[in-house]
């Protein structure tokens, strides 16, 4: 299933805490229901994004993993 994102955020090469920080700022700029595609290479981002999404109530509606790149589709609540 392909998810169409309203905004793409490239966090490749960034490490803790920048991916969550940039995700938070990007989500703030979206309207409720819009989708952010966040791309990261930090291996900690899988667990970090899950924790972040659970705590902030902005659900991850899809993920992709490919050769050390992690993609998260996050829906703004």
């Amino acid at each position: 299933m392909d998810i169409k994102a309203d905004k793409v955020l490239d966090c490749k090469g960034l490490s803790c805490p920048l991916p969550v920080l940039k995700t938070k700022k990007a989500i703030e700029e979206l309207k409720s229901g819009q989708i952010l595609e966040m791309i990261a290479t930090d291996p900690g981002s899988k667990n970090d994004m899950e924790a972040w999404a659970n705590r902030t109530g902005n659900p991850i509606i899809g993920t992709k993993e490919d050769a050390g790149t992690y993609v998260f589709f996050i829906k703004k609540s």
Partner: peptide, 9 residues
């Protein structure tokens, strides 16, 4: 780092 992460949550 941890403080900033928490602040984003």
């Amino acid at each position: 780092y941890i403080a900033t992460s928490a602040a984003t949550m």
